[in-house]
Amino acid sequence: MDAGDESAERSAAANLGHFYEEHLAQARQHENMRATVSSTLAAIAAAVIA
């Protein structure tokens, strides 16, 4: 394996790491949005029932 191959592998690993970090950020955003919508709908349902 020459230096070019090693550089390409490091670059690919860095890209995968970046994609994983982005995936985690989107998952956190999705969970926060789900919690917000659930809380809002529960509050509206409670207000309608009361």
Rank of each mutant, 00 (worst) to 15 (best):
E9Q: 06
S7H: 13
A35H: 03
S11F: 04
H18F: 13
M33L: 09
A43F: 02
L24G: 12
A25V: 01
A13S: 07
V48E: 15
R28Y: 06
A27N: 03
A43D: 00
S11D: 06
L41C: 07
H18T: 10
H30E: 08
A8C: 00
A8Y: 02
Y20T: 15
E21L: 01
A13Y: 05
A8E: 00
Y20S: 15
N32F: 07
V48Q: 14
A46L: 14
F19M: 15
T40W: 14
H23S: 07
L41A: 07
A35E: 05
L24K: 15
I49G: 04
G4V: 12
S39M: 08
L16F: 06
D5N: 11
T36Y: 13
R34E: 06
F19L: 15
S7V: 14
A35M: 03
S11G: 05
A42L: 03
N15I: 05
E9R: 06
H30R: 13
Q29V: 11
N32Q: 11
G17K: 02
A27F: 04
A3F: 12
R34A: 07
E31N: 09
V37H: 07
A43Q: 02
A43S: 03
H23G: 05
A12P: 06
A14Q: 01
F19W: 15
S38W: 13
A42H: 01
D2F: 02
L16P: 05
V37D: 01
A45N: 10
S39Y: 06
A14E: 05
F19T: 14
V37T: 09
V48F: 12
E21N: 02
A27L: 03
H18M: 10
H30N: 08
I49C: 08
S38F: 14
D2S: 03
A43P: 00
R28I: 12
T40K: 15
D2G: 08
A45R: 10
R10F: 05
L16M: 07
V37L: 10
A46C: 09
E21H: 02
A3D: 10
G17L: 01
D5L: 12
A50T: 01
M1Q: 04
H30T: 08
A50N: 01
A47E: 13
A47K: 13
L41V: 09
T36M: 13
H30S: 06
E6N: 12
D2V: 00
E21F: 02
S7T: 14
L16R: 06
A8L: 02
G17V: 02
G4A: 14
A12L: 12
M1V: 04
R34I: 05
D5M: 11
R28L: 09
G4Y: 10
E22R: 10
R34P: 03
Q26F: 07
A12G: 04
E6R: 14
F19N: 15
I44E: 09
E9W: 03
R10K: 09
T36F: 11
R10T: 10
A47H: 10
T40A: 13
A12R: 12
A47R: 14
A25K: 03
D2P: 01
Q26H: 09
F19A: 15
A27C: 02
S39R: 12
L41I: 10
A45D: 11
S39A: 10
N15R: 07
E31S: 05
A43K: 02
I44Q: 12
A13V: 03
A50F: 00
T40F: 15
S39I: 01
N32K: 10
R28P: 07
Q26P: 00
Q26K: 11
A42S: 09
A25W: 01
N15F: 04
H23V: 08
H18L: 13
A46T: 11
